[in-house]
């Protein structure tokens, strides 16, 4: 691991040239995807000026809320050096609960959702205590989520409680809800994870577990906290999805597993642990979301969509490797 990354982990320990390097690396990490997003939006607006209006943005960014919260959930797990292959089916499960229990027996529904967050924390504990690879545990969990979703709602249908669609159809003045929510979520995440002392500890668990343990923090508690955060974000993402769909479907979330991972990585995160930024993650989620629309506006067949999303990932990782090589 290069020196600048170390400095970024243990803020205050490193000084001088290392810190400047860290600042530059961090700026590039978010700056690159931000620039890419600006380019994408410019192309879309140039091709279709009516996308620039309040209505246009609302339509274009319709499914932003589930995407950014799913990406945030994935970010919490990647922050600790793990990966979550079950977040997509988890969203489906929340969707099914929200379209059935939450409407028919609200108290029971909320309890079920709380239990899901607890299950995520438990998954974190299991991975930590038994030293299991997260990729196996979360993949196994994904089948549990799917099975439960099918139990709750065997065929598409159901209806969420009335306040849920209303909440996500809310039209705030001047700024469309997806934009407003993205800004707030990025700001909140950025503050909690980058500017509070426990945020530094949480990131440190991924990057430098030994240093954190030596400083007297519980690694178990930290991992559980991050997994609980992932579970809570996943629940919000699932509720947002339900609000937009206005119904339940046990397979609806499947694509979010891969797009959420891609969003974190495109947004400047790395698999090694400890290196993630909430702001970058939100930008990454926007990029993955708009990739399909961009193709559509450029009149390129949708059959290319998955390839292009994969291509973006490879280009981003390639550019980052180049940047690291030139900095060294």
């Amino acid at each position: 691991m290069p020196a600048d990354v170390t400095a970024e982990m243990a803020a205050g320990i490193a000084a001088g040239a290392g810190e400047r390097g860290a600042r530059r690396a961090a700026a590039l990490r978010v700056g690159l995807p931000a620039a890419a997003l600006v380019v994408m939006l410019s192309v879309i607006f140039a091709m279709q000026p009516r996308a620039m209006s309040y209505f246009g943005l609302s339509v274009l960014l319709n499914f932003t809320l589930p995407a950014i919260f799913a990406a945030m959930a994935q970010m919490a797990v990647i922050a600790v050096g793990d990966i979550d292959l079950g977040i997509g089916p988890f969203l489906s499960l929340v969707n099914c609960i929200a379209a059935t229990l939450l409407a028919t027996r609200p108290l029971f529904g909320w309890l079920a959702l709380a239990a899901l967050v607890a299950a995520y924390a438990g998954m974190g504990a299991l991975i930590h205590v038994r030293r299991l690879p997260s990729i196996v545990v979360t993949l196994g969990a994904s089948f549990v989520w799917l099975g439960l979703a099918l139990l709750v709602l065997p065929s598409p249908g159901g209806a969420p409680p009335g306040w849920l669609p209303a909440l996500f159809a809310w039209q705030p003045p001047f700024v469309p809800l997806p934009v407003l929510a993205s800004i707030l979520l990025a700001a909140l995440g950025q503050f909690l994870l980058m500017h509070t002392s426990y945020g530094v500890v949480l990131r440190g668990i991924g990057g430098h577990p030994r240093a954190i343990a030596r400083a007297g923090w519980s690694l178990l508690a930290g991992r559980m906290a991050l997994y609980a955060l992932a579970g809570a974000s996943g629940v919000i993402a699932g509720l947002a999805l339900t609000g937009l769909n206005t119904a339940g479907d046990a397979t609806v979330g499947a694509q979010y597993t891969l797009t959420s991972i891609a969003a974190v990585i495109v947004g400047g995160g790395e698999f090694v642990g400890g290196i993630v930024t909430p702001l970058g993650t939100v930008i990454g989620a926007w990029i993955m979301l708009l990739a399909g629309s961009l193709l559509s506006f450029l009149n390129i067949s949708t059959d290319w969509q998955l390839s292009v999303q994969g291509g973006i990932l490879i280009v981003v990782l390639g550019l980052r490797a180049l940047n690291r090589w030139s900095a060294a």
């Binding site: 339509v59 274009l60 499914f63 609806v252 949708t302 969509q305």
Partner: peptide, 23 residues
């Protein structure tokens, strides 16, 4: 114009949104 989704409702929904904007 024909757009195909990958059996995913959110994906098809955003594609319909794009078509809406394209007039």
């Amino acid at each position: 114009k024909v757009v195909n989704a990958d059996n995913s409702a959110p994906q098809q929904a955003s594609q319909i949104g794009d078509l809406t904007l394209q007039g």
